[in-house]
């Protein structure tokens, strides 16, 4: 664990400059015309945004798996990502996306709505099972409303805009997106890290955790706020990016002492690295149109996850 964080940080600092140069057109800072403008206005914000949303998804996934004591949990389970997506879709539906701040604003409002609904449901002292079910219900409701919005789209253009946006991407993002997502994600990661000791105690089960002084409502509040900020701001600026929150904690867990608290920061770093590299690969691939990040991650993530499950099963059998 002590070596994991410096190692991942070093890799991130190595990957960042490479990602700035990589693309359909490889940049040579000294030869390419307008290299400085391209770097400063296009590639740097995009790379930073990849780092920000990857970090948020990684940390949220690690916290979620710790809370549910289940390595198959994913930040989408709480309904916050679908809630944010619904908000964004609503803004596209009404054609509000013209102003740069409106879509992320709507998405954040959607995430906030999902968070408030969750908090309302669990405010009466719900256990982990009810909490998760409530999240899944919110996710399914938001998903249904999103589908409704698509099917009732006012025109073909809005429909295609919604569908494309939902796939998740980092194309054409600017500094304003970075300034929106970075502080919110950072605050969310701090909150999730604060939930760490409570998540550690949950390793021993719900009643043992309470006997160790963990207040279930405080823990739930930290998780709702932390996941809401990280995932909500991620969806607001990049759409739905799947699998990062699921895979990254798996990859990082063997490098740590397996306590949920010591997994959160390394998962944030590894998530940042994964999305940064994946976004680079999306740009480099010689396709007619650029591969959407959300699609690419799911394309790679699903087989990876299957292999992981099969390996886990083999270990159990042995």
């Amino acid at each position: 664990m002590t070596r994991t964080i410096p190692l991942l940080t070093a890799l991130l600092f190595l990957a960042l400059p490479l990602s700035l140069l990589a693309g359909r057109v490889w940049l040579d800072p000294w030869a390419t015309p307008n290299a400085v403008v391209i770097l400063a206005e296009l590639r740097l914000p995009r790379a930073l945004l990849a780092i920000v949303i990857g970090a948020g998804l990684g940390a949220a996934g690690a916290a979620m798996q710790g809370y549910l004591r289940n390595p198959l949990a994913d930040p989408g389970l709480f309904g916050i990502a679908p809630g944010a997506a619904l908000g964004a879709v609503a803004s596209l539906w009404f054609g509000y996306a013209a102003a740069a701040w409106l879509l992320p604003g709507f998405a954040l409002a959607g995430a906030g709505g999902a968070m408030a609904l969750l908090a309302l449901i669990v405010g009466r002292g719900a256990g982990i099972a009810l909490f998760t079910l409530a999240g899944m219900m919110i996710a399914s409701l938001a998903g249904a409303l999103t589908s409704l919005a698509i099917s009732l789209a006012p025109n073909a253009f809005a429909m295609s805009e919604i569908v494309t946006w939902l796939m998740g991407a980092l194309t054409d993002r600017s500094w304003s997106d970075v300034w929106l997502a970075a502080p919110l994600t950072l605050a969310g990661i701090v909150l999730l890290r604060l939930a760490g000791p409570g998540l550690d105690a949950l390793t021993l089960g719900e009643s043992a955790a309470r006997s160790l002084g963990v207040e279930p409502r405080r823990l739930q509040a930290l998780l709702i706020a932390g996941t809401g900020l990280t995932v909500g701001s991620g969806v607001a600026v990049a759409g739905i990016v799947g699998f990062v929150g699921l895979i990254v904690p798996h990859l990082v867990r063997p490098l740590t002492d397996s306590r949920p608290s010591s997994l959160i920061v390394p998962s944030a770093l590894a998530g940042a690295l994964l999305v940064l590299v994946a976004d680079c690969l999306c740009r480099i691939l010689p396709l007619v149109t650029e591969l959407r990040l959300g699609i690419a991650l799911s394309l790679v993530g699903a087989p990876f996850f299957l292999a992981l499950l099969l390996r886990m099963r083999r270990e159990v059998l042995e």
Partner: peptide, 15 residues
């Protein structure tokens, strides 16, 4: 007060 529950659950493979 230390409490030892009946089900000795350990969710993660800690040392």
């Amino acid at each position: 007060i230390g409490y030892l529950p009946q089900v000795g659950e350990v969710a993660w493979d800690l040392s």
